[in-house]
Design a protein around this nucleic acid. Sequence first.
RNA 1: CGGGGCGUAGCGCAGCCUGGCAGCGCAUCUGCUUUGGGAGCAGAGGGUCGCAGGUUCGAAUCCUGCCGCCCCGACCA
Length: 441
Amino acid sequence: MRLSKFFMPILRDDPKEAEIVSHKYMLRAGMIRQESAGIYSWLPLGLKVLKKIENIVHEEQAKTGANELLMPTIQSADLWRQSGRYEDYGKEMLRITDRHDRDMLYGPTNEEMITSIFKSGVQSYKDMPLNLYHIQWKFRDEVRPRFGIMRGREFLMKDGYSFDMTPQEGKHAYNKMFVAYLRTYARMGLKAIPMRADTGPIGGDSSHEFLILADTGESEVFFDKAFYDMDWSTFEIDYDDKQAVASVVDDFTSKYAAAEEIHNQEEFDAKVPKDRQVSGRGIEVGHIFFFGTKYSKPLGALVQDAEGNQVPVQSGSYGIGVSRLVGGIIEASHDENGIIWPQAVAPFDVGIINLKSGDAATDKQCEQLYGDLQAAGFDVLYDDRDDRAGAKFARMDLIGLPWAITVGPRGVKSGMAEVKNRKSGEKTDVPFSDVGKFISQ
RNA sequence: CGGGGCGUAGCGCAGCCUGGCAGCGCAUCUGCUUUGGGAGCAGAGGGUCGCAGGUUCGAAUCCUGCCGCCCCGACCA
């Protein structure tokens, strides 16, 4: 993409409403635009990141055998009246009336609908187990939306639901998601620590929240330093191997980690030596629950087992805050000059800075490099605008692409591009023909 | 929901108290000079001063009502 043709409205000053770094940088880099309290438009740069995150979620879900579907944002109130939650949900639910005076709502979650879909499609144990998920916009009419997309009213969420015949199988489904979530976050360059969570009003047997550490996190967290030394990204796993999956879960859950609501200092002291106790602030980017039959019984989600009995299914639900992750990643990875995108979620792989647009030799060299890198499979943002060097460097740092390649008359003469690693800040002179190879390493 | 604050050009703000041509910086456009970390000079464009009503010869400014937004707290994925 040529910057001259890319809609990326950069702001030089911090918008006054932005308090935390991710909100500031997202507005300044032209990733989002606020439309209303807690409601945002996603501009091209922001949307590219959002899509990258979605893709990683899809890929990791696919490995577990989960099925993607797509449910509507608007739901009928009838469905919610049946579960009794229409009244219970309160003012957080946005209620709408259609032209026929029917009560509708903008879905804050999809348990009712997915259960209805499940019931209409599955009657036998032969169709089990099943995991259905989608990535869809949700609306919860928060009392006080804030921090940009971190606590918006409209937000993009992956929500998945598992259905199994026995508690053991249900627990395995839960464990699979536990591991899949670890892998999903790890691919985004995040260490999302699974913390035992309060099941709260939802109830159920088992629940974990995944929190990434950042000073601006909304909750205080306490955990064992040992998490820092764990293997977060490399484990390959056979999801059908119940033992292997369970042992990864055990490995993580055996170490102390809790958010403040559930934190118990006595237990913390008993399980973790003082010098390994760590506390900090965290951002919740995922939450998983295993319910057993808590919902399937009242909702009548029954299937026939091999003996012909109607039995309630074992269910669980699994959520990832997809849009929140965009902000969460920025909170976890930035410096005073801007965002530092982890490779896997960067809006572009690499940026080319033409230091002297209009200079025939420099333009030609940039065009050549731009074409070569694209041919090599890189998604390239080519800054071909006629701005001063300083402005271009500042802009490239702000949007935080992993690599920035500077091409100027000096380099054209010597045959070298200056390749800068955004994260380390390290600059290396590389012959133009070797740039692709260099940044692949 | 309680408390505090703010709505004036794309962004950041001044002007309001004490009514009298709607301004400044950045950004944008044109020209010239520049060009390896947010250039200089000269010029230009861009506004229902959040909305509605009132007071007044005259309202961004005073009064009333409404709307929107932000921050702190409580609450919450």
